[in-house]
Design a protein around this nucleic acid. Structure first.
Lengths: 161, 161
DNA sequence: GTTAATAGTTAGTACTACGAACTATTAAAT
DNA sequence: ATTTAATAGTTCGTAGTACTAACTATTAAC
């Protein structure tokens, strides 16, 4: 139990924690990136930067966005010229989503915006506190990542009737 | 810098932290509450439990949900019989949103579901670690809460043309 | 007493989540 | 080897939410 600004609290539920921090952060990040004229899902671009040969399925799994939505997200980035789809010759069902030169060019600006906000968000943290925080988050993540979700992406094949 | 499951990372950005934890948690929470046949915004009910005489505007501000969306959210709960609107006689523009007996009755089940998930999410935390985590979150919250957001709820009055 | 601001509302647009079903392709079963 | 099942990506349709603009009723400000 601790006190903060007159509010007494007994260990906050995770949902409250998430909503407290997520909304202002994403709002600010979106605003900060307005001038880049990016779709909201810039995390896709970051994933593409980190991993070569991402299929849409892989991106969907990694970012926990269902693959139906992912089609339109990739369409949007492709339309803007940030990514292109390249069919995998070894498995022609798959399309690798790759950054175009224009896509690669915009990434530093994305990282800059993220860094600036993070520097503010954690401005009064010592490195030790920051590391402890990350460690705690990782622990929580491992505890929750296998939760049975109502948003599990299940693909079922059905025959024509 | 720390290591986890072979992944090396240097202090995660807040956005990654949020999305890592938020999605599985909310997915599980929604599933856990399926049988209650609740709308997704059960946080509204919790807020109503904690605060008497909540106006819709107050709820919108507190939960960072715009007031236009709030109309439908309250409509939904009212339709289900969990809340009712009561006009403030001292300012007839305002409507207090109040829990009905049915609404009050369902809250223990909501708290139970939240507690069960939180117990799992923080299962390997000592009380000291848990308190430190909350403290860190509060600090981050204070750092980000006044971010200029692209989602600021601005109400503009305009004259008829 | 007119003007401005506020609480709540409706209409309309845009984005996302999701289920179902479809095509093309590859893997598995027998 | 041929049938069957599974997978990657897609389209369609539905639902929820975010947001802008504009509106009514009411109250506050000048």
């Amino acid at each position: 139990m601790a006190k903060e600004n007159g509010d007494t609290y007994i260990n906050m539920p995770l949902g409250k924690i998430c909503s407290m921090v997520t909304k202002p952060y994403y709002g600010a990040l979106t605003k900060k990136m307005e001038h880049l004229k990016l779709e909201k899902n810039f995390s896709v671009l970051i994933l593409l930067e980190e991993n070569k040969h991402c299929t849409q399925q892989y991106i969907s799994d990694a970012l926990q966005i269902d693959k139906v939505s992912m089609v339109k997200i990739i369409d949007g980035f492709a339309k803007q010229g940030f990514v292109k789809r390249v069919q995998n010759p070894k498995d022609r069902r798959e399309y690798f989503v790759e950054l175009t030169p224009k896509g690669q060019k915009i990434l530093p600006a994305i990282h800059k915006a993220i860094k600036e906000l993070n520097d503010i968000a954690f401005k009064d943290f010592t490195q030790k506190e920051r590391d402890a925080f990350d460690k705690a988050i990782i622990k929580v993540y491992h505890n929750v990542k296998h939760f049975p979700s109502s948003h599990v992406i299940v693909y079922k094949t059905k025959k024509k009737t």
